[in-house]
Simulated scan of single mutants.
Amino acid sequence: MKNNSKTKYIFFSRELSLQPDTAHEIHDVLCANAAANLGYASVLAYPDRKNYINPLKLIFPFHPKQPDSQFVEFYGVQEKLKVAALPMLWLTDKVGGKFTSSSTLVTKYYLPIHILPCTKIVHTRDWNFVKAAIKNKIPTIYERHYFQEQQFEPEIVNSPFFQIAITQSEPIRESLIKYGMPLEKVVWLHNGFENSFLVRQPEAALEWRKELLADGREHLVVYSGALYPFKGIDVLIDAAKELPQIQFAITGGTEAQVKKYQQMCKDKQVENVKFLGWILPRKRLVSLFQAADILAHPHCSGNAANFTNPVKFFQYMASGTPMVVTEIPPLMVFKNSPLIADWCEPDNPHKFAESIQYILKTYPRKIEGYADSIKFAGQFCWENRAAKILTYVDQSFQP
C-alpha cells in the first residue's frame, strides 16, 4: 500500500542566521519558497541554535509553521512556505566531537525519527544530510555551489535514491564528475529572481531618486550584493572616481565591510558613492533597482569568476533597468541575448566607466523598464528553476 503520509518536500539549510552577507542562506530560502509557490508541501528545516529549556521541544521537535514577520521581512517569502526550526541542545557545536554537533543531532535523530515519516523528497546543500537521507531511502536532490575537493562515496551517489546534483556553472559540474559523481546525475542551472521584481513601483522608485540624487546629480548607478574584493567593489569605486557627475549607490555587506569601503572612498577622495547597507524589508530592492539609470555588475577575474552565478544578475534583468556587466564565464551565454546591457572586461575600472557612459547615452532610463529585458527574464524566475529541477527526478519520487 502506498504511504500517503509522505507528502513533504523538505529543504534543509545548515544555517539560517538572518544576518547580512548570507547569499547561500537566501538561496536556500528562495528555493524552498519557489517550490511552495508551485503548490508543493514545501518545508524549510534548519537548526535553531537558541537555548531551549523546555525538554518537550526536543521530544517533539518537528513542527512546520508559518515563518514569523522578521523572517518574511528579511527573506521576502510568500505565505505558502512553511519553516521548521529544529531545536538544538545548549552544548551543540560549543564543544568538540561529532556527538555534540548539530549535524549529528539532525542526521541521527531528527531526520530518521521525526522528519522521515512525512518526507517525500529532500533538497539540500548539506552533504551530511544527503548521506543520511540516502541511508534512510529518501529521494534526494543535492546542490553544490563550489568546486569539489574530495571523492564522493560511491554507495551514496550511485544509489537510486540519489536523484540529481545541481551546480551553478560548467566548471563546478566538471569538478563533481571528476570526483565520482555519475555524469548523468549532475546538471548546472542558472539561479533566479523573485516574481516581486516584475512588479512596477514607479512611486517608490521616484522616492529613491529624490533621496539618492539630492546632491544635484542626474544619474544613478546601483550595485547590490556582497562586498568582497573579488566581486569588483574596488573596481566600481575606481570607476565612480572617473565619473564624479554620476551618483553611485551600493547595497549589501556587513557593517564592517561597509565601514571598510567608506574609508576606501574617503582615502581615494571619491565623493559620489553612497553605502546603503542591508536593505529591509527585502522587497524595497525592487523599487531601488527600478530607480536606477544603470545596475552595475562588476566582477574580478580569477577562480571565483568561474563558479559564481549571482542572484543579483537575474534580479537586475527582471527590473528592466539597463546593466553594465563584467564578462565572466557563467554569464557569457547572455552576452548575445536581448538584455539591455553593455559588457566589459574584468579588472578594468576605466572600461567599466566607459560602459556606464555608453549606456547612459544609448539607453536612457524608462519608468516602465525595457520590455526586452523584462520579457527575456521571465524564464529565470525561481519557480521555473524549481520546476526544471523536478524534471530530473523520477516520477515515482516527485512530491
Rank of each mutant, 00 (worst) to 15 (best):
S337N: 10
F248L: 03
D21G: 12
D267F: 01
R49K: 11
P154N: 07
Q257T: 08
Q168N: 11
P20L: 11
A318L: 08
N54Q: 07
Q245M: 02
I138T: 07
E79R: 09
R125Q: 15
R49W: 12
I294A: 10
L390P: 00
E327M: 09
R284E: 13
P330C: 14
I246R: 09
R49T: 11
D234L: 02
D347Y: 00
Q315C: 10
Y40G: 09
V95M: 15
V222R: 01
L339Y: 10
L56T: 01
L280S: 14
R14A: 00
Q247Y: 09
L116N: 14
H145M: 14
Y40K: 13
R217Y: 06
Y179H: 15
I26T: 04
V222N: 00
Q245N: 10
F71W: 05
V72F: 02
D342R: 07
K335F: 10
N4H: 11
S17A: 14
I53Y: 14
N158I: 00
A34N: 10
K50D: 13
T7F: 05
K388A: 08
K366Q: 15
C381Q: 05
Y46C: 08
N158H: 10
R284G: 09
A353E: 09
F193K: 02
G76W: 07
I134L: 12
P244L: 05
I138K: 02
V222A: 01
V311G: 04
T22Q: 11
T362N: 13
G232D: 01
Q66G: 03
H123D: 11
I134P: 08
R209Y: 07
N128H: 07
Y9K: 05
G225A: 11
I356F: 02
I141M: 08
P87I: 12
F60T: 14
A41M: 04
Q245V: 02
F376D: 12
A85E: 00
F74Y: 14
K6T: 13
H299Y: 14
E73C: 05
H27V: 08
E368A: 14
G302V: 14
K375W: 08
V106C: 09
Q263P: 00
L198N: 04
S355P: 01
F193E: 02
I121Q: 12
V186H: 01
L339E: 01
M264N: 02
D215F: 03
D293V: 02
K98N: 09
L295F: 10
K82C: 08
S196C: 03
I26N: 06
N195Y: 10
K50Q: 10
D126W: 05
S355I: 00
H123W: 15
F289D: 06
